[in-house]
């Protein structure tokens, strides 16, 4: 996804001289195509993320469209007040681009786990938050956010994520809600690369006789509420899966919307467990530990639709 992002950004920058790229000294083997082609519109600000976001705001105030790149917690958490005040308050054309959404840097420890960034960003004024699942969605989201005016957050994986969509998505393909098919009274909603586990989980569930609809929802903010409400009226259960804390992410956003309408289906949220932040391991290991690998997702859905409790024993929020 990283390379898809930069490839698309280079294409856009060739057409639009306003585009600038900042990095907080990260992006080795990723950002070079932009740096080498547009050296006057590229700046490595050093390991100083608060300064990076402030600079991004200042550049945007002179008419630039700025992309600011780092790893999730450094780009978002370290510089959160600059994002809130300098960028969102002023409603500026700044896209914070972060790699490491979720636990692709799992062995590096909690400092490198992108576990709460969606919660931090999606509540900010004027903010669009996108968490694409694969390279096709990453390219689409880059263009979508470029065309949109105002602040945004693009949450990427680490790189090397397999394609989930069958091919390139049209630039005009809606606002971040992709129906991936399937059928039945249970819907699985997810974003980010964990969607690949949902695809496998859906296959397992279908084999057990439980039909599942699968939706990719890269747009956490603004959340596409119209298709969500339509889906909710057609389903008995919604399960939201994300490589993010169970609190405050896509699942939280979905639950907030549905809670305001009577007669809506229950929502089960699967994600990272805040009780396991000290667990070290690779991405697949941490998916399993948090119950969001394919088997864990299928088991949770199976248990739930089969009359099990909405909260699994041992779950923490």
């Amino acid at each position: 996804m990283r390379n898809t992002f930069i490839s698309r950004l280079v294409d856009l920058a060739a057409q639009d001289e306003r585009i600038h790229l900042l990095t907080g000294d990260l992006g080795f083997s990723v950002l070079e195509p932009f740096r080498d082609r547009f050296p006057d519109r590229y700046l490595n600000v050093g390991v100083a993320e608060q300064n990076m976001i402030g600079i991004a705001a200042g550049l945007a105030l002179t008419g630039k469209k700025v992309f600011a790149y780092s790893i999730v917690n450094f780009a978002v958490t370290r510089a959160l007040e600059q994002i809130r005040v300098d960028v969102c308050y002023h409603n500026l054309d700044v896209t914070v681009v972060a790699v490491g959404g979720g636990v692709p840097y799992g062995p590096q420890g909690y400092t490198h786990h992108g576990a709460e960034d969606v919660a931090f960003t999606r509540v900010l004024p004027n903010m669009a938050v996108m968490a694409p699942c694969d390279p096709h969605e990453a390219a689409w989201a880059t263009t979508h956010l470029y065309r949109r005016r105002g602040p945004s957050y693009l949450r990427l994986g680490k790189g090397g994520e397999p394609a989930i969509h069958g091919g390139a998505l049209a630039d005009t393909a809606g606002s971040g809600w992709f129906d991936l098919g399937g059928g039945g009274r249970v819907a699985l909603l997810a974003n980010g690369p964990i969607l690949g586990e949902c695809v496998k989980a859906a296959e397992m569930l279908v084999a057990e006789g439980i039909g599942v609809r699968l939706i990719s929802v890269p747009a956490v903010a603004p959340l596409p509420t119209a298709p969500l409400l339509t889906l909710a009226r057609e389903c008995d259960r919604l399960v939201v899966v994300e490589e993010h804390s169970r609190s405050g992410g896509l699942g939280g956003a979905v639950a907030e919307v549905l809670s305001e309408y009577p007669g809506m289906p229950a929502v089960k949220r699967l994600g990272l467990d805040s009780g396991k932040i000290k667990t070290i391991g690779d991405q697949r290991f941490l998916w399993r530990e948090n119950g969001i690998d394919a088997a864990g997702i299928a088991a949770a859905v199976w248990s739930w639709v089969d009359g099990g409790p909405a909260l699994m024993p041992g779950d923490t929020i």
Binding site: G54, L59, T62, G63, K64, E81
Partner: peptide, 27 residues
């Protein structure tokens, strides 16, 4: 620029200074 939280103005000013040093179609 709206301010009130200390430590924000100099980074923003630096970004503005950089933006104003460069010429493009809009500037």
């Amino acid at each position: 620029v709206s301010t009130g939280s200390l430590g924000h103005g100099l980074p923003i000013g630096l970004g503005m200074a950089l933006g104003l040093r460069r010429a493009d179609a809009s500037h």
